[in-house]
Amino acid sequence: MKVLMVEDEPRFASSIVMGLRAEGFVVVHVDNGVDGLWEATEHQFDVVILDIMLPRLNGYEVLRRMRAREVWTPVLMLTAKDGDYDQTDAFDLGADDYLSKPVAFIVLLARLRALLRRGAPQRPVVLSAGTLTLDPARRVVERDGAPIELTPREYGVLEYLMRRKDVVVTKQEMLQHVWDAHYSGPDNVVEVYVGYVRRKIDTPFGTNTIQTVRGAGYRLDSGEYRSGS
């Protein structure tokens, strides 16, 4: 099995590379995001170990560009325990698995083997609601072909609603699936982000895709059940 490791901490990388080679893996190691992206897109690997905080190009951007080029190799992301990005953000941005440093080699090995058994994911289906589309593979949102720029959290809110279009979802459900199951802050953060998303996907286009259901939550209207349609 061939592994690409993109990691800029020399001692950590050396120990992991030595351990993997001792387990029979073929390992290619690079120490920056630009070289990591080149290796991941120009050569075939069974799995990629990708640090987030990398020089030249961060891990999230490496992953985004990999998927944009339709490279579906499973990716295990690594980050410092006190880093700027949390687990939710990693999965929101397309990681297949996630580990915080420091990590025991035996745990990392088990996660890698699990990803290898699972294999490369299939290209996600493009989600749509009327003229609004969301491509999970490229993380691209468009309305009538016009691109819409969203932050990672706004994207997470919209994707969750689009996967459950025409169904009422509660604030608590959104907090658990878009933020974190252990989030303990105020639930009005959902209202704030729904407002942000509306101002980008609806307001400029004169549409009303995300509807508030008083006392219940929110519903993304696909337009498929309107009378006369």
Rank of each mutant, 00 (worst) to 15 (best):
D86S: 07
D221F: 04
D31C: 14
L108K: 05
A68C: 13
L127E: 05
E23Y: 06
T203G: 01
E159L: 13
G119H: 08
Q211I: 13
G119W: 12
A146I: 12
G185F: 05
Y160V: 00
L175A: 05
P10R: 14
V27A: 10
L54S: 08
E42D: 13
R153N: 04
T79E: 03
E9H: 11
K2L: 10
A22S: 15
P136N: 04
P10D: 14
E142N: 14
G185K: 08
R219H: 05
H29E: 04
G119Y: 10
S227H: 11
Y193Q: 13
V48C: 12
D46G: 15
Y193V: 06
A137V: 10
S229E: 12
V6A: 10
G156Y: 02
A104C: 01
R118A: 14
P204E: 11
Q87E: 15
D35M: 07
D221I: 11
V157R: 03
V6H: 00
R65D: 07
Q122W: 06
L109D: 00
K165D: 03
V140G: 02
S15L: 13
L158H: 00
H29C: 04
I210M: 06
L132M: 12
L37W: 05
A110W: 01
R64M: 04
E7Y: 09
M53G: 06
Q44Y: 00
I52H: 05
I106K: 15
M77W: 06
S229V: 13
H182C: 10
R118Y: 02
R153K: 15
L158C: 10
R123Y: 03
P74K: 10
L175R: 08
Y60K: 04
P124T: 12
W179V: 04
R117K: 13
M18V: 13
A129G: 08
E9R: 07
E142M: 15
R226L: 14
V34Q: 12
D187F: 11
L134D: 00
R111Q: 10
L220S: 06
T212W: 06
I49G: 07
S227Q: 13
I49Q: 04
L220R: 09
F45A: 05
A120D: 07
A129C: 10
F45I: 06
R113K: 15
A68E: 15
V34G: 05
G59F: 01
V62M: 05
